[in-house]
């Protein structure tokens, strides 16, 4: 009886264990993320916005540079949103199509946000992980450098850079990328100090794995959870910074535009009953930011189930 059962159990065990690839922590996290309705919906909305910024221009009647001479100066009367004129979102005071300009602005703003965050994440993670893992004097020096850079007012440097070197997207990237990795490196260093004392790091050291490989293979992958969360929260921060700079009139160069620049123009003419000039870019801006924040929230819950 017992022997027969034993064989049965053995069979069962073999069947169970023959299930191919295992479930990684990433897969687990993805499942938890998908269960978060707000985050999943936000991700969907954001993807729609991104898709719109690429596909939407095919449906545009007016390009973002072309001027509708009918609407120049009389945007309040002629340039309202309508399907007949082809200005789906209306025109601005110069007769330019807001629909095309919003698409263009979305591309620029998202690009600045995502590229800026990528730079910050890559530089910040490597810097923070190196500093935290090596420890001792190296750590002290590296972190004091961060402290010094952090004490410089961020906006001030950015504005100065744009004034001195002229307004350009590249300069904007340089300025934002230069400064936004600082927070990242601090967060990552803290996490690294925490990870460093785990036994699997010690195990790797005992095996004889080099410091570089320990950082790349053992520390960074285990940091990615917190990094991913912080990155999604960093993107809206950078978009906001870019918008603020553009709002001040120092951002991207005409005829290119961004959400901030559009909002600025819209808000300047709000007293002439052309509220569409403000509301359309603002809606995109607000919805996207909300999406990023919800996704960040969802990621945090998904990647760190114990923290809730």
């Amino acid at each position: 009886m017992i022997v027969a059962n034993k064989n049965k159990i053995k069979d069962m065990a073999e069947n169970l264990s023959d299930s191919g690839p295992g479930r990684s922590l990433w897969k687990d996290a993805r499942m938890r993320f998908m269960q978060n309705k707000a985050a999943t919906l936000s991700l969907f909305v954001l993807l729609v916005i991104v898709a719109f910024s690429f596909i939407g221009s095919h449906f545009a009647v007016w390009s973002y540079e072309r001027i509708d001479w009918n609407a120049v100066g009389s945007a309040a009367k002629v340039g309202m949103p309508s399907i007949e004129t082809g200005h789906y979102f209306g025109t601005d005071d110069l007769g330019r199509d807001i629909y095309s300009r919003v698409i263009q602005g979305t591309q620029i703003s998202l690009m600045v946000g995502i590229l800026g965050a990528t730079v910050a994440v890559v530089v910040g993670t490597l810097y923070g992980a190196t500093s935290g893992y090596l420890g001792g004097r190296t750590d002290q020096i590296m972190m004091r450098i961060v402290d010094i850079l952090m004490s410089i007012p961020y906006m001030f440097v950015l504005i100065l850079l744009l004034v001195v070197f002229g307004r350009s997207i590249i300069m904007l990237f340089v300025g934002i990328g230069l400064l936004s990795w600082l927070d990242m490196s601090r967060i990552v260093r803290g996490q690294t100090l925490n990870l460093k004392n785990k036994e699997f790091i010690e195990a790797a050291q005992a095996i004889g794995v080099s410091d570089y490989k320990i950082i790349m293979r053992h520390i960074v992958p285990n940091l990615l959870g917190i990094v991913a969360v912080y990155a999604t929260l960093l993107v809206p921060g950078i978009i906001l910074a870019e918008s603020f700079i553009s709002f001040l009139g120092l951002g991207v160069q005409e005829p290119l535009t961004s959400w901030g620049a559009l909002i600025k123009e819209g808000s300047n003419t709000i007293m002439y009953d052309t509220e569409w000039q403000l509301l359309f870019p603002l809606a995109f801006f607000v919805v996207s930011l909300f999406c990023f924040y919800f996704i960040g929230d969802g990621l945090r819950d998904a990647l760190d189930p114990k923290g809730r």
Binding site: G22, S24, L25, K198, E199, F200, E202, A203, A204, A206, I207, R217, H218, P221, N222
Partner: peptide, 16 residues
């Protein structure tokens, strides 16, 4: 080579 006290903690959770 070395074998450690806490079996789970001595394995990197992100590696197969």
């Amino acid at each position: 080579q070395m074998i450690f006290q806490d079996p789970l903690a001595s394995l990197n959770p992100r590696m197969t």
